[in-house]
Design a protein around this nucleic acid. Structure first.
Length: 377
RNA sequence: GGGGGAAUACCCAAGUGGCCAAAGGGGGCAGACUGUAAAUCUGUUGUCACCGACUUCGGUGGUUCAAAUCCACCUUCCCCCA
């Protein structure tokens, strides 16, 4: 099955200093250099940006969400439109998340059973049941390049017994997803490793998940509030188990420190709402650390968001102007902050890839952190 | 000229004897945000020597144990009639 997969990982180089991987992810909608950051466009749009803008920032793949598009506008409509790529005018690769994260984030409006998850729609409260089979069918209709199994992203603070049961159910759901997927030639199904913050459960989940011989593996249920060192520990347990010829995707990670540390621990793919959400909420990620440009201290600051940035926002606008736009509730303000944040992370990944090629990723990390630390008060 | 109404914190606006340093919005200030129910949410917003004290509800004086709330006069604004 693997050899027929529409998505293939090509390993280019392993950093001699850190063990990090550089590679290429071949998809039906283009080749993607890894490690890669994938902007999130839940509702078939990266909020505040046009697809052309997202593409111009260097993104070759974005996320969309099964649950949200199922609820609205409905996957049949997207199929009728000619698939997600055509519907949203995005010619590059798309990865759809299965709705597993909504099991976590909409926990107040959902019930988990062996058969699947029943949701009360966040839009109108109507009851819907998402099963592993339906999650595949919806993603088939959407036509994304990479599809995710239905999993349960459990609360990391849940007790061990629950996490174990949840991870095992996620494996049973994977089996059903694989069966439903039927070796589709155009879409690659990724499995998701769960197991919370328990090393043995993570190990069990990883070992079981790879028996399905899938074109890629994700690590889920992390970066949901647990301490960073626990997350790093889980990665150190899981990535050595995952096959070297397949991409490894750490779901939901997007702060610069997590990205760098994740790559060092063998991760190839990341996605996160952080840059777009932070931007809309008036915060920018810079080479000197996070900066809440909405704050009064920048009212008269006529320097760029990040003095070391070459993005459109930083080349043309000042902190003072962008703060003014945000305070005045002008759309351009959050477009510019989003623009910058996406550029920053995509550029960071590009620098990480180059550092891997030079076998200097650890040096790069130390330099990066000293820059941000130097500006912390 | 006559009659009626209103003045509350940065703004709007509740409150008509003690539970009022004073509801609620807005604005301001700050914090949070990591497979997006998020252009959202949370906190804070009289002063200070801040688990306590002090000064406030147009102004002045009064009634009362107690006043943003009651009384008198004054000031300003709005509406109606001439």
């Amino acid at each position: 099955m693997t050899t027929d997969s529409p998505v293939k990982y090509e390993l280019l180089h392993v950093c001699k200093q850190s063990g990090a991987r550089r590679g290429i992810l071949h998809t039906p909608h283009g080749d993607i250099e890894t490690p890669v950051f994938m902007p999130v466009g839940t509702q078939a749009t990266v909020k505040a940006m046009t697809p052309e803008e997202v593409s111009s920032l260097g993104a070759g793949i974005v996320l969309a969400n099964t649950y949200h598009l199922w609820m609205r506008p409905g996957h049949d409509l997207v199929r009728e439109a000619g698939g997600l790529h055509k519907f949203m005018n995005w010619p590059h690769a798309i990865l759809t998340d299965s709705g597993g994260f909504q099991v976590f984030s909409l926990s107040g409006a959902r019930k988990i059973k062996e058969e699947g998850v029943s949701f009360n729609s966040h839009i109108d409260g109507s009851l819907h049941e998402l099963t592993p089979e339906l999650a595949i069918d919806i993603q088939t209709a959407l036509g994304s390049d990479i599809i995710m199994q239905l999993d349960e992203c459990a609360d990391w603070r849940a007790d061990r017994g629950y996490i174990k049961a949840s991870a095992e159910r996620t494996l049973r759901w994977l089996e059903r997803c694989v069966k439903q997927h039927k070796n589709d030639a155009k879409q690659a199904l990724f499995g998701i490793v769960q197991g919370g913050v328990y090393e043995d459960l993570r190990k069990m989940s990883a070992e079981q998940t790879i028996t399905f011989d899938l074109p890629g593996y994700a690590i889920g249920g992390l970066s949901v509030g647990e301490p960073a060192d626990i997350m790093y520990k889980m990665l150190e347990v899981v990535t050595p188990i995952l096959p070297a010829d397949k991409p490894r995707y750490l779901m939901g990670v997007g702060s610069p420190d997590y990205l760098i540390e994740g790559v060092i621990r063998g991760i190839d793919m990341f996605d996160c709402v952080l840059p777009t959400r932070l931007g809309r909420n008036g915060t920018v990620i810079t080479s000197q650390g996070q900066l809440t440009v909405r704050n009064a201290s920048y009212a008269g600051d006529f320097t760029p968001l990040d003095p070391n940035c070459s993005c459109y926002a930083c080349q043309n606008y000042t902190r003072a102007y962008i703060r003014h736009l945000i305070k005045a509730n002008e759309i351009l303000g959050l477009r510019l902050t989003t623009w910058h944040n996406l550029h920053f992370l995509l550029n960071l990944m590009s620098e990480i890839r180059e550092a891997i090629s030079r076998d200097e990723l650890l040096d790069f990390r130390d330099h990066f952190f000293s820059q941000t630390a130097a500006h912390k008060e």
